[in-house]
Design a binder for these strands. Structure first.
Lengths: 186, 186
DNA sequence: TAAAACTGTGTACTAGGGTACACAGAATTG
DNA sequence: CAATTCTGTGTACCCTAGTACACAGTTTTA
């Protein structure tokens, strides 16, 4: 009945967080439970509550990691861009949208879920805001603050519809609004 | 023990749906349960399962009503607009965004929650799509199809950030992208 | 080395919830 | 009016789940 292993096993905590991420990506916030995580991580139920006393702790930790991963992803995208023209930025952004939808769909879905959840649960607000904040940060390298925020809003609209719509936006549907936004002259 | 009332009581069904709407608006999809609805409607638990065998039936019915209400709202907005210039449409749309955020926040929050939920639950897709579909329908009166869809996407981005952001978009933040989108000339 | 502190686990308590269903009045039908 | 059907309820079964907690090895400390 007692423990089999010795003292602090840092891998345990790690494995639990990784399992939590997988659960969230696969089934969303609604699928998160101590038991599901324990099963996924292959650890006893008690372990999950030992490292993360409450569900919110677990959720917080996992979301923090996921948003960090997303931030890395975006910064990598930003770093890969050289100096480019307006048109070049538009194409690059469209590439980003298409790549995210294609390759990171679960993470995107989760981020929207999180945004919605944060509207009711203030404790999630900071985590949810991180996504948009990161977008702006990366975009600010190529545009001014104001434009970066505007782009972030439009990008989220495009991403949302790319995930949710019956017929997703075409390439032109994506580049159109972005180009309009980046083209000066009222 | 036995029933007290006679035959079909159409008000019952009605009251249960109304209660479901209130639950959803107040606490979101996660707050929905037969028991919560029964409590809210002041009917016994059995009533809710009698009229709506499963939770999904209940959810479907309530969402259908809510999206119909939203459609009415949008159509009313559209009907109140006369023939107007591009600039006039931009201002009207900005008014709409601000009014929705101010006066219909719970319904908006729910619609985003629904969009996110529909990404995982195909049975909710149709209901979730209705919102965007309605937007397009109303906008199509004033613009072409392509522009209507683009506007719908941008509007959703603006609404999302208006609800979620730490500092919501200003009036100029709202009119900017809309004007850009409606101003021809690449 | 004895005691205190820490790391884990197994189990159990409590709450909430979906759904089935037996049953009871009321209405309808023949 | 008897039988059948419909409307509606109360209850109960079974599951999931959060969390507390006693307890057991292990390590550290005095």
């Amino acid at each position: 009945m007692g423990a089999k292993r010795g003292p602090a096993d840092p891998a345990r905590r790690e494995r639990i967080m990784a399992a939590t991420e997988r659960i969230l990506l696969r089934g969303g916030i609604a699928a998160l439970s101590h038991r599901a995580v324990a099963r996924e991580a292959g650890v006893p139920l008690g372990s999950t509550t030992y490292y993360f006393a409450t569900l919110d702790d677990l959720l917080d930790a996992a979301i923090r990691r996921l948003s960090e991963r997303y931030a890395l992803r975006l910064h990598a995208w930003g770093a890969a861009l050289g100096d480019l023209s307006r048109a070049g930025l538009v194409e690059a952004l469209a590439d980003l949208v298409e790549a995210l939808v294609r390759e990171d769909r679960p993470a995107l879905v989760l981020s929207f879920e999180l945004s919605a959840a944060a509207m009711r649960r203030p404790e999630l607000r900071d985590a949810a805001l991180l996504y948009a904040e990161t977008e702006c940060e990366v975009l600010r390298v190529h545009t001014d603050e104001r434009t970066a925020r505007a782009l972030s809003r439009v990008l989220d609209g495009l991403l949302l519809h790319s995930l949710a719509a019956a017929v997703p936006p075409t390439r032109a549907d994506i580049t159109g609004p972005l180009a309009a936004l980046l083209t000066p002259g009222e």
